[in-house]
Design a protein around this nucleic acid. Structure first.
Lengths: 188, 188
DNA sequence: GAAAATATGGAGACAGTCTCCACTTGTCAA
DNA sequence: TTGACAAGTGGAGACTGTCTCCATATTTTC
């Protein structure tokens, strides 16, 4: 996935500037800036922006790449200190918490999850994987096995897609509550 | 909500033609047609299209208006013949079933649900309302009361937003399973 | 330090959206 | 009927944002 050819020094610098600027703008709630304008604000030419990030989504993914990686690491870490079912619960709650204070991330994830193929979906796939792992670990005994990780991700996609609804936080918490309660194997 | 001034005969005719044409194209999976081209295909001028439907979403909502109304009616009908909890279950299953064979509807609903205000959201609001009603009826005794209709709608939004994922059907069924199982009041 | 490789920027081609208004069509009162 | 007014039409073209292209500049390599 990582490129073989190392970027030239100036190219690397530009790329980093672009990501930093994008992060700053996204954090300020400014998502729909003209792409050309955006290049200008970052102090590079349009061509440079397009060469590094062919699409808006590519840029968004680059900006949130670390964040998504951190999320996945967190999941794996939780798995080492908690029973798998509790780890999944804690992870999902964490995700919602994080999304709530990072609208841009929610937006980006909603897009990444909707994009089924290509490098762009990498982040979505990574998340899917950690959820699937937690789920698999928790299944025997505690979780039902007729519902897959895809369904959990789909619920998560709803949470992401609805990121700017006024009642987002409480609704999202509710979704997680339903998913977790629903996953628990019904008592025999 | 309905306009006071009745449309002139030719205007009404054009509007109907536009909706019919859009329905036909959507059914064929053709969603992202140029708006201008679309007008041409329907045999009207660009101006006419824009006057009737200022945005793509307005057109989509008009196309699926009947469908959404039918869904809401169906929910109310179910409520008269089944206990509320079963009615909600049947309704949600029905919705997924319907979405599955009408991608355009899923797409449209995803947009409508994401749009928090304005006439465009009417369809989304109507659905929210019937779900809220079913839920309220089912609550005493059977359903938990710490999770609102907004959460159910959010899960539904995920189902809609993921409409073109390859595993959509089974994942969506899983989400409904989780929501319904999660809603059930845990045995004391 | 010269050649080769790599990257830059921004002008301008292009594509899609949407407005505007001279003109057409429908409605209604007389 | 008909004439006058209201309502609606269509499509040229202004506008807005996207993206490509390439002469020029910078970095790397030998």
């Amino acid at each position: 996935m990582t490129d073989a050819r190392p970027l030239r020094a100036d190219a690397r610098r530009n790329r980093d500037t672009l990501i930093a600027k994008a992060r700053e703008l996204f954090a300020g709630g400014c998502f729909d800036l003209r792409f050309d304008d955006f290049a200008k604000r970052a102090g590079v030419g349009t061509g440079t922006l397009y060469r590094h990030f062919p699409t808006r989504e590519a840029l968004a993914e680059a900006v949130y790449h670390e964040e998504i990686t951190a999320m996945c690491d967190r999941a794996r870490e939780l798995r080492t200190t908690l029973p798998a079912d509790e780890a999944l619960a804690a992870f999902l709650r964490d995700v919602v918490d994080h999304l709530h204070s990072h609208q841009g991330l929610a937006r980006t994830l909603a897009t990444l999850m909707a994009t089924r193929s290509g490098a762009l979906a990498e982040g979505g796939r990574a998340l899917h994987e950690v959820v699937a792992d937690l789920l698999a670990d928790a299944r025997p005994g505690t979780f039902r096995d007729d519902v897959g990780a895809g369904s959990v991700m789909m619920a998560l996609q709803g949470i992401c897609a609805a990121y700017d609804q006024p009642t987002h936080r409480s609704d999202a918490d509710g979704v997680i509550t339903l998913v977790l309660a629903g996953l628990r194997r019904p008592a025999q």
